[in-house]
Design a protein around this nucleic acid. Structure first.
Length: 291
DNA sequence: CACTTGACCTGTCCGC
DNA sequence: TGCGGACAGGTCAAGT
């Protein structure tokens, strides 16, 4: 589910809620969701304390004071939800909460802390995973070696965007924006939203995009990601933050999931096409293919 | 190589 | 109401 803004929202929530807590017990029922040896969990997690929560691309990292960390990818439907007590109802926001009692049938991992609170890793589709590993080994993972720059970092200038996109200059821009080795953290929602903002058709070949539009694209990527973090991310279906609450970016979306509605800029009916194997939304008047 | 498709899973929605 | 198929925010591996 989550792209950079959703993972960042979860990170901010977990950082407030989890730092300092001591692990008491871990229950898990689906090996692919938590592929760890029992001895590693006993030696490097149980009884240890959480010291920091980080994010790189769409990956969450929970550091323990044992030189080990949980590395977490939520993929399509993963959720990390904290409860001060297990088995109670959510934060008391009936309109904002998607989930009630925990654990439930989507719970893959249940981490109990010594103060009685719990962290639940829920994942309907079981694509996501969390694994315990030595903190220093994280940077050795293939994914981390290859992943591109963070689009909200100070060093991510328009020139850096151009240089990264040119690595796949003959591919369609939508596919390139989704490529995590080009840029970190952009997924289907924010790719469509930023291309609409820059008035670029998702199937445009990178080398056919004029320089000034690439500069606009750089601005739009940062604008859309920052706005989405402000709004607590996008809840299309499953996404919730660390307290189980939905994000509200979808109320601000200009094209994503708005097929058949009118373009907020020109009023033309928004289309949904297939690009890079993904549902792709665009305004056919604002976003024309160069000819 | 570069791009597309299938696989990993469960759930929901739509058409017949 | 039931059933089949398409589709869903991500990433790999395999195939063309």
């Amino acid at each position: 589910m989550p792209e950079l803004p959703e993972v960042e929202t979860v990170r901010l929530g977990l950082k407030k809620l989890l730092v300092g807590k001591q692990l008491d017990n871990i229950k898990h029922d689906w090996p692919k969701s938590f592929p760890n040896a029992v001895t590693d969990v006993e030696n490097f997690a149980i009884g240890k304390n959480i010291i920091n929560i980080r994010r790189r691309a769409k990956v969450l990292i929970i550091d323990l004071n044992s030189q080990y960390s949980f590395v977490i990818h939520l993929k399509m439907t993963g959720q990390m939800v904290f409860r001060s007590e297990a088995y109670n109802f959510g934060a008391g926001h009936p309109n904002d909460s998607l989930i009630g009692n925990l654990p439930d049938k989507s719970t893959r991992v249940d981490i109990a802390f010594t103060d009685g609170s719990h962290l639940f890793f829920n994942d309907q589709r079981k694509f996501g995973w969390m694994r315990l590993m030595p903190t220093t080994m994280i940077q050795e993972l293939d994914f981390f070696k290859k992943v591109g720059p963070e689009p909200l970092s100070k060093t991510f200038t328009p020139a850096v965007l151009v240089e990264r996109l040119n690595r796949r200059s003959r591919s369609a821009i939508k596919a390139v924006l989704l490529d995590q080795t080009v840029l970190a953290g952009i997924g289907n929602i924010y790719a469509d939203e930023s291309l609409w903002g820059a008035k670029i058709h998702p199937l445009t070949t990178v080398c056919d995009i004029p320089k000034n539009k690439l500069k606009t694209l750089h601005q739009e990527i940062q604008f859309v990601l920052k706005l989405a973090i402000e709004k607590g991310g996008s809840t299309d279906k499953n996404y919730v933050d660390a307290e189980g609450k939905k994000g509200s970016y979808m109320d601000f979306a200009r094209v994503f999931r708005r097929e058949g509605l009118s373009c907020p800029r020109c009023g033309t009916i928004i289309l949904k096409i297939r690009a890079a194997g993904r549902g792709t939304h665009l305004c056919p008047k604002c976003q024309k293919l160069p000819r």
